[in-house]
Nucleic acid binder design. Structure first.
Lengths: 342, 342
DNA sequence: GTGAAAGCGCTAACAT
DNA sequence: ATGTTAGCGCTTTCAC
């Protein structure tokens, strides 16, 4: 059997309570005894029993992560960044993928809570675009960090997100100053927040600069609800070939995601349309797809790695300084990452 | 406060011991009382406290996953498949990325063990290619499932892997029957098992069919140790352009991974060399990269999703049937996934 | 087959 | 500042 707190206590010639204090509240014990205890701990290679500890409501050094699609490179980058910083701090992550299933989201959350996770990080939760967001109007026993969600946090909840607007706007401005008309916003059919935001921004931009409908249109990828699956590349390819065959074909296009941007690139190549000389294309996310395709895709960088690190660091901060008043909302701006297609 | 075992006991008019038995060892209690207890459990929505349970060495419904590079799509597909089947069974995964760091591997493993994980699944552990594989010559208190590792399991350890040989050999045979010479095996400089295997297979093939050195050569990507990083695409591109400028340029090439295959594709396109008519290229893994590139890459499918599911199902099986004698090694064959480049 | 009670290893309230 | 001790909620002997 492994070494217990009482073994350490005996070794250091103190009571178990003192050992416990040294571990959980070091200031409460005189530095002389503390050092004796500490050396006894390291000498005996003592590690507190995880379950006895959890039973008494201490930290469990675990945080639950809910990702809509852990398989998607976009999520992977965020999850990985979180994992990097947390695991190196001795905090381990439970990872669950709940897709669009709000029932799973609820179940996984409850199971996390039951395991006394020190925090829950939800990356684009399924109920996010829903009227009754699961994490809204509810009090949880641990902080909830919402990543890339567009709601106002309350209570012990936090939001960390990348603001898509600066990047999108930067592209719009470039289109104007470089006179890349007609411009086309190419989206999926689903009414996701991300798509809605781009539409709203386009409207604002058109109004501000009196851009005509002919010079700035929105095209929706037909017959396709899930534009985040791999076949979005080929659907886009087929569909966009028709768009490019049109006499008033676009001079520049912003795709709703990188899969779609890839499809456009292929369509253009097959039609002998030079990118970016005859057709400029911009994607959004900055995943490995945009970095490894050819030509490398100019894309709106959503800084997922930074976002993941911020979320993890925020948690570590909350934990280490429970009394410190934290910002509830952390936003970093997106920007264009210029490569070869725009 | 939440509902405890004694509340359920009171509700059912039995002792806490009986409730505990109903949960952990149902046959030990008469069906009449069992039903009363079961209905009390569901009526009160009782869930056993995770930590009290763990303190008594029951199942913790958690398994630790060690992935060398969780960020790499190859690993992501395996991890995701595991997570899908386990989480739907109420078993949650701890995910850690240990890269090439054997110290981290050791530390994470110990921490998992401390949390009484019901199993540990290691996907290509860092110490795998090392003389002293961490999981070898050691007895752990939970089963260890080694994924895609080429060692003989012992004790309570298991191996689930995809055999690369059939896929590689299938390609070699095609090269011969379709007379795609000269053939080139394009690898990194590191002596990974995967690269070594392909070299050995090539040697065997050359010998069997008396293929000359001129017709079948191995080229190593120079000045690059880590061929699994994204820039492998562009290093390969630069390097392979020179190879293709050579008079005796290859007619077919098997790349060491898909990043490298991508680089070759781009190099060929830029030089106006038609794929697959003038240059056939095959990758290995079958990640989203090969499915979304253009033209879609013919690749050796390592069936990562199946591998992940097998590993997870194996664990569930071990758990549900502790007495059943399990196969220690589970191997599925690879095969060529024909797309447009070969 | 079922119940009573003794732990599991730790933390925290209370004493000293 | 440190020790004593009563739990935390469950499982598991040991009686009956």
């Amino acid at each position: 059997m492994s070494i217990k707190i009482r073994d350490v206590a005996k070794l250091a010639g103190v009571s178990t309570a003192t050992v416990s204090r040294v571990i959980n509240d070091p200031e409460k014990v005189r530095s002389g005894t503390r050092q004796r205890v500490e050396s006894a701990i390291s000498k005996s290679n003592y590690k507190p029993n995880y379950f006895a500890r959890g039973l008494n409501n201490g930290f469990t050094d675990s945080v639950g992560i809910l990702a809509a699609y852990a398989i998607n490179p976009y999520f992977t980058e965020i999850v990985n960044a979180i994992e990097q910083v947390l695991s190196r701090n001795g905090v381990y992550i439970y990872l669950c993928s709940c897709e669009t299933n709000t029932e799973l989201e609820k179940r996984y959350t409850e199971d996390f809570l039951e395991r006394n996770t020190d925090a829950i990080i939800a990356i684009e939760s399924p109920s996010m675009n829903t009227v009754d967001n699961y994490f809204l109007n509810k009090q949880f026993k641990c902080p909830i960090i919402l990543v890339n969600q567009h709601i106002e946090p309350f209570g012990d909840n936090y939001v960390v997100r990348c603001d898509q607007e600066p990047g999108v706007w930067e592209m719009f401005e470039q289109v104007r100053s470089r006179n890349l008309f007609p411009f086309c916003l190419f989206l999926g059919k689903d009414a996701s927040y991300s798509f809605l935001l781009k539409e709203a921004l386009l409207k604002k931009w058109k109004k501000k600069y009196h851009v005509s409908d002919k010079d700035a249109q929105i095209i929706h990828l037909e017959k396709m609800r899930d534009t985040s699956g791999e076949d979005a590349v080929w659907h886009t390819h087929d569909y966009f070939k028709k768009v490019l065959a049109t006499p008033a074909r676009p001079r520049a296009v912003l795709a709703g995601n990188e899969l779609m941007a890839l499809g456009i690139l292929v369509a253009a190549r097959e039609l002998g349309i030079a990118v970016p000389e005859e057709l400029a294309v911009v994607g959004i996310d900055n995943t490995l797809l945009s970095r490894t395709c050819s030509p490398p895709l100019t894309t709106i960088d959503l800084h997922m790695k930074d976002i993941g690190q911020m979320a993890a660091n925020l948690y570590m901060d909350i934990r280490k300084n429970p009394d410190k008043k934290q910002e509830k909302v952390h936003i970093i701006p997106s920007n264009l990452s210029y490569r070869k297609t725009f």
